[in-house]
Amino acid sequence: MKSFNFWIIALLFAVTSCTIDKTDYEAETGSEVPESYEFKEATSLTSGNYKISIEALNGAFYKGYNELRLKITNTQNNQELTTASVTFLPILSNADGSKSSCPHEYNVAYDATNKYYSGYSVFTGESTTTASWKLYISFTADNQKYEINKDVTVEKQSNKNLNMTAFAGNDGEQYVIALVSPQKPTVSENALVAGIYKYNKPTTPAGTFPDPSQFSYSEVAGYTLKLDPRMPEPSMGNHSSPNNKDLTQETDGLYHGVVNYTMTGNWTLNFIMMNQNGLIVKGTIVPTDHTPGVEGVKSELYIDTLF
């Protein structure tokens, strides 16, 4: 009998002793990627009888692409103002007094279906002690033009899948590329959406501040963004994926393509931006060979992601 007991104790020990836990895959991908799909009021401004509420994802402005929803309410009768012509201008002031802007929708149009004024702003930097953002908004109501402004805080975008890059193209123009979606990529073919914007150099001398002609940006039309996603870390040996699609512009003005993530981890989206004529504006071809132990070479135009 002793031997039986021995075996049973041995088996008991074997069965109960600890082993490596399986990865909780759903929780794991969730923890790396903060996700926010809810629009909340990020700031509000008041001018006379009117209150302007600006809604953004998660109720905050982040570096990179921000979809904005503006609502103008008459505080007297609580009626929403839907017919105003609204302009929106974000201005960045540096310590040296220099002022600049970022890609934005200057004329914010009313979206009757969703009942808000729809715009966007691609903040190119976070608010710091030496750099502060201010929003300049104007609208017309009762045949009167209202102009207001307010300081806002632009926070760090902790979701690397909404990263952006600003650069000078080979054509001498200033460009910004900002990732719009997916917020939360998965191991799969992800629809990749990005905005490409260009700074319109002023052709006229500056008028009274803020003169929108000095701070004008536009969506770039008809370009192609060639995509080559790779895992840059040395251990990944320049790993890439099949079935990716280059980004081209669609009717919403944004650029749409497909990025196929084969596994979770750090990825670099290597881009080559070409203009309407197929000329390279920015970007270099990256090596495609498997180079274990060597950090992957990035294109001169790239955006890092992580999930």
């Binding site: 990865t23 794991e28 895992m231 040395p234 251990s235 750090n266």
Partner: peptide, 20 residues
């Protein structure tokens, strides 16, 4: 059947990738 792959750089607290 379950099999996982998880890579680490020299610093094991950092994660390079995960896949099944």
């Amino acid at each position: 059947s379950i099999a996982e792959m998880r890579m680490y750089p020299q610093d094991r607290s950092e994660r390079t990738m995960f896949a099944y």
